[in-house]
Design a protein around this nucleic acid. Structure first.
Lengths: 167, 167
DNA sequence: CTAACTGTAACTATATTAGTTACAGAAGAT
DNA sequence: ATCTTCTGTAACTAATATAGTTACAGTTAG
């Protein structure tokens, strides 16, 4: 989800976006977005401006933000987690399995990080654009204003709920 | 946790283990173990025998089971998941972000799978043994019987709860 | 000063997983 | 045959994590 949010901002091209409008695109609540933006701000990925005409924009250029940066900013735990209760210390396997698993987890994590570090936000937007083009070039030129319009249009509809997601 | 269970079995060297004893080592409930064992049995990683003197053992040799096999048997969803609700289809970014993210998710998943596929159960046990040796060689020779003894010893103590885990 | 924003606390809702109790059925032991 | 010791599985409760909601204080442009 955080990737979605930052992609929006990269797409809006330095125009500050309001949490309400971002929420419309992500199809969620503005507060959820603001919470996430706070995390992203702590990691210096976005800057927000309070007050009227405020909003959030990227703190760096899209080519200087990788998916790894985003992942580290919002994801607290690693890819997998260990036992919820510690294994039995009286069992020869139980005592030592933890350190073995931790080594494996470290290997997995660093593999994931390697993949994510190779993808920048700019690339993500690039992967997006070929599809967007089919809608028409006006959307691209309009930038942030388009999002605004979309949000306004959506506001009059009821809510709907369907699938599942975290990024 | 599944890795823990299968490591126990590899360690027990083809001796069938009872769910109750495995549960003692993992420090959880026998039913939780049996549920997991059922999943592992569906994936043909273990075989179980009902009835008295029953139990479970590995269906293949430890060197023929990788952590990827275990991961795929037990973990239903990929490493990350997508939006819990679908993004706004009226937003140019919202419509297309899903397919972009799916591509990324696929890359991440295959990186994880590559790492896991390179580690066999036999190796996991090997990483374990240097530590176990410090306890004394008797434990190693005793095999399944040792687990039994450990379980019996533990049974008289109260319960305790502390940390966190999934594999 | 006011309107339009963000930041954040406090709470509720939902989903996933673990743990528990209970019991039917399988197979060795007698 | 039947008792005992196991697995398999259903049905429920508990714990945890995340999302969503409401509410409001603080900030800034006009």
């Amino acid at each position: 989800m955080a990737v979605h949010v930052l992609t929006l901002m990269a797409w809006a091209d330095d125009e500050p976006l309001k949490s309400e409008h971002v929420a419309e695109s992500v199809n969620t609540n503005p507060v959820v977005i603001r919470r996430m933006l706070c995390e992203l701000a702590e990691s210096k990925l976005v800057v927000s401006q309070t007050g009227s005409m405020g909003g959030s924009r990227l703190a760096r250029q899209p080519e200087e933000i990788t998916l790894l940066d985003i992942y580290q900013a919002v994801e607290s735990r690693g890819v997998f987690s260990l036992h919820r209760h510690p294994p039995n210390p009286d069992c020869p396997v139980g005592v030592n399995i933890g350190s073995v698993l931790n080594d494996v987890l470290d290997e997995v994590d660093s593999a994931v990080e390697t993949v994510l570090s190779k993808i920048t936000l700019k690339e993500a937007v690039g992967r997006l654009k070929p599809c967007v083009r089919t809608v028409g070039t006006t959307a691209r030129i309009a930038g942030a204003k388009t999002l605004n319009a979309v949000a306004t249009a959506k506001r009059k509809n009821g809510k709907e709920h369907t699938l599942s997601a975290r990024n």
